[in-house]
Each structure stands twice: as C-alpha cells, then as structure tokens.
Design a binder for these strands. Structure first.
Length: 212
DNA sequence: GTCGTGATAGCCT
DNA sequence: GGCTATCACGACG
C-alpha cells in the first residue's frame, strides 16, 4: 500500500514528522530493498534559506516546483546523493529529506552496495549512505514515489518517541539555521551519528520530545 | 569515543 | 571560482 499524493500535499514539517516509521522501498532487479525511516528534515519553502529552492527555480530545483509525491534527488559534494520527497502544492517548492533508515528487507544486498559499511548500523545511518544502500541516484530524480522502482509504504512501524532538533549542515541559513525541523526516532541506533542525538550536551539547542 | 581533513563534481555568480 | 542538506579514515590517547 503506497502512500497517496494527499499524504505529501501538506506542510513539510507535518510530512517529515509523519514519515518517521514509514517504509521506503526500492525495487532492484526484482529484489525488494526496504528500510524503516528513522530520520527526516523539512525544507519548508522558498523563504527557507536552507531550502535549495530559495535560490530560485533552476534545472536542479525544478522538480520541487512540481506536484507533491515525487522524488527530488540531488548530488552533494560531488560524491553522494540525497533523497527527498516533494511536498506542498504544485508551484510551491518544498520537500522532506530522508536522512536515515533502519534496514528491513534485502539487507545483504544493501550491505554489498555499501562495502565499507562494517556493521549493520552503518548501512543506512545517513542521507548519502541510504542512497548508496538502495542504489538511488539522479536517474530517480522526479520519480513517482508511488511508482514501480521506488515507493513509500503506508505502513507505520513503531517509531517510539519522536525527537526534534535543528537541521544538520545548514549553518549558512541565517535565522533558519536553528529551526527545529529535523525529526528522528529517539534512541534508534540507525539515526545518523551526530552530537544532537544525545541531548545537546555543552549547551546546544534543547531537544523537544513528542509522543505521537 | 572525538576531532580534523581530503575527496570530488555539479551547481550558480 | 566558491560552495555544498556528506562520508570515511587516521590521529589521538
């Protein structure tokens, strides 16, 4: 059961929160690779200085200006890919970054796609890692997220408590840097490694815990 | 465990 | 030419 377009046609923060626990699936040579989403970030619109679309409508950001429920895949640092789900409405550019998964199906295949991942927890614990593990690159940009090659299932596995923090790697975004638009399954080992996971020791931003 | 750093290419002024 | 929604590895100790 794939998530309907209406799921994505909402504010990015709501979609980001509700994607925690859902299952992303990649069909590769007939094999099913699947992972439970345990970390996301919302990029909320053209005014959000961390959102790529804030720099205008370009070839790269074009898909974000389209209808919700499609994949926005971009290459970062010339090395890795990142997978997003386009949100909101057509003409309003926004998206949710899938930052980490907990492997469920096709674990051995995913491990082979990430030969440097030693432990299972290294397979999908980051946006670049999970794209490697699921063979996601820019050929899937603009792919239907209810399509045959990649989709997100309306199947909510228990996420436990959902925590909120500022987004990672957006120090340049001025007043938007500290917006609490990163969501993750609190305490889940597959969340990307970062000091913000452990509760802001050293005077970092507070983490708000929410029970959904 | 934490910290620093290099890799690498597409994007946009 | 400068930057980037990252990752892996080596140096610590």
């Amino acid at each position: 059961m794939r998530l309907p377009k209406s799921f994505y046609a909402r504010s990015s923060t709501e979609v980001a929160r509700d994607l925690i626990g859902m299952v992303v699936v990649r069909k590769l040579d007939g094999e099913r690779l699947a992972g439970k989403i345990v970390e996301t970030e919302a990029y909320v619109g053209p005014h959000d200085l961390a959102c790529h679309a804030s720099k205008g409508r370009t070839r790269r950001t074009e898909v974000m200006f389209g209808p919700p429920g499609y994949a926005y895949v971009f290459m970062i640092y010339g090395v890795y890919n990142c997978l997003n789900a386009v949100t909101e409405r057509k003409g309003y550019p926004a998206a949710v970054l899938i930052r980490a998964i907990e492997p469920i199906d096709g674990v051995e295949r995913m491990r082979r796609l990430r030969p440097r991942a030693g432990r299972e927890v290294d397979i999908g614990s980051g946006p670049g890692k999970l794209c490697q593990a699921m063979a996601i690159d820019r050929s899937l940009n603009a792919a239907n997220l209810a399509g045959p090659d990649i989709w997100i299932e309306d199947r909510r596995l228990d996420p436990g408590r959902i925590a909120v923090s500022p987004r990672i790697g957006v120090d340049y975004a001025g007043e938007f840097t500290d917006k609490p638009w990163r969501f993750f399954a609190a305490g889940n080992a597959h969340v990307s490694r970062h000091r913000l996971n452990s509760g802001g020791k050293g005077g970092g931003s507070p983490i708000v815990l929410t029970v959904v």
